[in-house]
Design a protein around this nucleic acid. Sequence first.
DNA 1: TTCCAGGGGTAGA
DNA 2: TCTACCCATGGA
Length: 286
Amino acid sequence: MSLENVEIETPENFDFLSVIHSHPWAWLEPFDWDEEKKELRRIERFQDGKVVKLLITQKGDKLIVKVDGNSEATEIRARVRWMFRMDDDLSEFYEVCSHNHKLAPAIGKGRILRSSTIFEDIVKTLCTTNLRWRQIVPMVARLVTQLGTPIARKPEYHAFPTPAQIAGVDEEFLRKKIKMGYRADYILEFARNVKDGKFDPNKLRFMGSEDAYKTLKSIKGVGAFSSAYILMLLGHYDYIPVDGYAKSFVSNEFYDGKEVDSKEIYEIFNSYGKWKALAFWFYEGR
DNA sequence: TTCCAGGGGTAGA
DNA sequence: TCTACCCATGGA
């Protein structure tokens, strides 16, 4: 095992801690956030099947990636850049924020952490619906440790399972061993479709938001909320993920506690145009 | 025991 | 397009 460092220069207005705290992904395996060291651990499986441990910290205007294992620096850079949204241009969003005191604190923020594959982000979103957070964390941990490839000499660390690894078990396994409940059926069907080439998550990268929304919603188990959530991870912000939390926030902030639905939420944030979901996500007090 | 969680599918209107 | 109803899990 070798231990090497890969350094990546951060773009202007890059806030490492804001990416970590943008949503709860950093607390879901195979991520793990060390609050004391301010270090993000990520177990990553590469094209050739090799699994390595990445330890990511910020030092000045660079991200330092300690790599435990042998892998290509180029590939590591590409994946870290993708996960940390380092190529996102948010200058237009910050311009919008500068005209609203409730959004001024969002300047420098707006990069929402994502997994290295869209497949993983979709599976994780399916896992998070209709459950309490303390149930989601162990469920995802079971999925990763029981199905993901371990690091050869450190079998306690596992990468996120591939579509083939999930597709290789039956629904009973996902229900009983991973304790996914009714989600087992959805996740299994999705993994099998990806494995068989019937659904290619990477095509979502090149779609406009409307097409991507329709495509995501066609996945069984992915509804309006999850589609909008995944769209944010893809970098499209014109659909707002409306859930119970969104309703209660908008109700208290804008409607004096009166019950609201999607329609009222969009009425508030429509003025932000293609940035509406990001404006909603980083609105002060949310 | 009962309730509920930062939902979604389906049937029926 | 909208609504009612059901779906499981496990902690409080």
